[in-house]
Simulated scan of single mutants.
Amino acid sequence: MYFWQRTNSHVWCESQEERWEVLWLDYGGQVERLWSQPFAISFGRRSPLSGYAHFPDFLGQFTDGSYGLFDERPEVLIDERARLQFSETAAVSDLLGWRYQVMSGHDSRATGNLECLSASRHDRCRPSPEMEAAILEAAAVGQTRRAICNLVAPDCPPLACSWVNTMAWHRLLIVDLGEVFSSETVYTSAPLAPTNAVS
């Protein structure tokens, strides 16, 4: 299960790989609502998969109100049969005016780091407006996590850790997710949040 904060509900995931992909969708910030295995697509007589059905892994509603379907499958497990199924599902999505994406995994270190950031994604970890401004100012030219926390919370630097994490999760701070995280990890202020586009 993955807690989808925007709807205050849990999204069921069939595997850890699916849960990681949902984590990336959440981080991207473009999907407002997400449903797990929402329905079956029964392929008609004109389809090479006629007589078969497919349950897409997820249905998402984007922040602009549009919809899209998502399937998760590691690249190494996508065989010809799966490619055909995904192609036919994309055709159905196109007919409905929906987007479609096959999610095939991310760098494992980046996913692990994102998992760490996600622990602080909840509103309870948000800093006050004053603290947020101080963190953004401290990171304007790039600062280590240790330096930022010591600067904005000198009496208790660990208190600022969740503030830094939640700001990175919401893309207010830029951090290289592919690097090993430590107290020396450098964060910089993000003038504009990355799009993290979902095609």
Score class of each variant (00 low, 15 high):
Ile135Lys: 03
Arg126Asp: 09
Thr111Ala: 03
Glu115Ile: 00
Ala153Asn: 05
Ala138Asp: 01
Cys125Val: 08
Glu115Met: 01
Thr144Tyr: 00
Leu114Ser: 01
Leu114Met: 02
Arg121Met: 12
Glu132Thr: 02
Ala153Lys: 06
Gly105Asp: 09
Met131Cys: 04
Ser120Pro: 04
Glu115Gly: 15
Ala138Ile: 15
His106Glu: 07
Met131Glu: 10
Leu151Cys: 05
Leu136Ile: 11
Ala153His: 04
Ala134Phe: 07
Ser120Met: 14
Ala140Arg: 11
Asp123Tyr: 09
Pro154Lys: 00
Ile148Lys: 00
Cys125His: 13
Ser108Thr: 15
Gly112Asp: 10
Ala134Gly: 07
Ser108Arg: 15
Gly142Thr: 06
Ala133Ile: 14
Cys116Leu: 15
Ala119Pro: 00
Asp123His: 13
Ala134Pro: 07
Ala110Asp: 09
His122Ser: 10
Pro154Cys: 03
Arg124Leu: 05
Leu117Ala: 04
His122Phe: 15
Ala133Pro: 01
Asp155His: 13
Glu115Asn: 13
Ser128Ile: 04
Met131Thr: 14
Val152Leu: 06
Pro127Asp: 00
Ala134Cys: 12
Cys149Gln: 05
Ala138His: 07
Asn150Gln: 15
Arg146His: 12
Glu130Trp: 08
Cys116Ser: 09
Asp123Ile: 14
Ala138Lys: 07
Glu115Phe: 08
Gly142Phe: 01
Ser128Asp: 03
Arg145Thr: 11
Pro129Thr: 12
Thr111Pro: 04
